[in-house]
C-alpha cells in the first residue's frame, strides 16, 4: 500500500518536474488574444469575412488586416466581444439579412426556352442568360441554397429561392453566388420589400411575369418617402426609415410583400414573430 503510493507519487513528481522544466525551456510565445478571439467567434468557418475560416480571421485581426465588423454571421454581439478583446471602439454594423427580390416561380414567370441540363443557376445562366424570360428573376435551380452555410435558404416546389429571416446571418455568400444578382442585403428592421428585380419596362414585364413591378409609382404615392423608382423598378428606400406598409395594398401586381404577414407562396417558413420595427428610435 505504502510502496504503491510512494511509487506513483514519485513517478508523478518526476513527470511534473520534467514537464515544468520543458514548459520553461521550450516555451513558444502565442498571442493569448488569438485564443480569446477564437473563443468568441461563431466557428462556422464560413469565410464571409474573406479569410480562411475563423482562425484566419483571428490572425488577420491581430495583424490589422481585417476590420472588427467583418464577421457578419456573428452579429453585433460578436463584434462587440472582438472589439473588447482587441481594445478598440466598435461601431456595430446594422444587422442585415439577405432577401430574394423575386416571386416569379415556375407558375408565375414564363420561360423563354426549355432548359435541360445541370441543376445549377450559374450553368443555366451561361446558356443565353438563363431560361427565365425575365432577365433578373430567380432561376430556381438552387445554387444559393446549396452554398448557404447556415441552411437558411429553401427552394419551393415551384422553383423559387426563399431566405429565412431567422436563420440568415448576413454572410453574403448567396449574394456573390447568384448569377442574376437577385439576392440583396437589406436591413433586418425592414420587413417590407419590393420583390422584383426586373428593370424592363412595365409592358414587357407584364408579358413574362404575373408578379413583376411595372413601375406604376402607386407605392410611391401611397407612402411618400418610403419608396423610390429607379430604372423602371420600384424599391424600398432602406435609408429613409419611413413606414412602407402603406404601399403594399396599392401595388397592382402584388409584388410588394411584408414578411411579417408571411413569406412568398410555397415557402415552409413561418413569418417572423417579433416585429423588429418596434425598436425604432423616436
Amino acid at each position: 500500500m505504502f510502496s504503491a503510493i510512494l511509487t506513483l507519487g514519485v513517478m508523478g513528481l518526476l513527470a511534473a518536474l520534467a514537464l515544468g522544466f520543458a514548459a520553461r525551456k521550450f516555451a513558444v510565445e502565442v498571442d493569448p488574444r488569438e485564443l480569446a478571439l477564437l473563443e468568441v467567434m461563431p466557428g462556422a468557418n464560413c469565410g464571409a469575412c474573406g479569410f480562411p475560416g475563423c482562425g484566419g480571421f483571428a490572425k488577420a485581426l491581430l495583424e490589422g488586416k481585417a476590420m472588427v465588423t467583418d464577421c457578419s454571421p456573428g452579429g453585433a454581439d460578436t463584434v462587440e466581444r472582438i472589439a473588447h478583446i482587441l481594445g478598440v471602439e466598435a461601431i456595430a454594423a446594422e444587422p442585415e439579412v439577405a432577401v430574394v427580390l423575386c416571386q416569379g416561380d415556375n407558375l408565375r414567370a414564363r420561360d423563354k426556352y426549355i432548359y435541360q441540363g445541370l441543376e445549377d443557376c450559374v450553368a443555366a445562366q451561361s446558356l443565353a442568360q438563363g431560361p427565365k424570360a425575365c432577365p433578373g428573376g430567380c432561376l430556381g435551380l438552387g445554387t444559393c441554397a446549396r452554398i448557404c452555410p447556415f441552411d437558411a435558404i429553401e427552394m419551393t416546389a415551384e422553383g423559387l429561392a426563399v431566405i429565412s429571416r431567422e436563420k440568415c446571418t448576413g454572410c453574403r455568400k448567396c449574394v456573390s453566388a447568384c448569377p442574376r444578382k437577385v439576392i440583396a442585403m437589406t436591413p433586418l428592421r425592414t420587413t417590407v420589400h419590393v420583390l422584383c428585380n426586373s428593370h424592363d419596362k412595365g409592358a414587357l414585364v407584364r408579358k413574362y411575369c404575373e408578379l413583376g413591378c411595372i413601375a406604376c409609382h402607386l407605392c410611391v404615392k401611397a407612402s411618400p418617402g418610403a419608396y423610390k423608382v429607379e430604372n423602371s423598378l420600384a424599391q424600398v428606400d432602406y435609408d429613409s426609415h419611413c413606414d412602407a406598409t402603406g404601399g403594399i395594398g396599392k401595388c397592382p401586381t402584388k409584388c410588394i410583400r411584408d414578411f411579417i404577414l408571411g413569406y412568398p407562396e410555397g415557402s415552409s417558413f413561418s413569418p417572423p414573430v417579433v416585429p423588429v420595427q418596434a425598436e425604432e428610435n423616436p
Partner: peptide, 12 residues
C-alpha cells in the same frame, strides 16, 4: 507526460 513533453520539444 511523455507525449506532452515531446510536443513541447517539437514545437520549439
Amino acid at each position: 507526460a511523455l507525449v506532452q513533453l515531446v510536443e513541447m520539444v517539437i514545437q520549439k
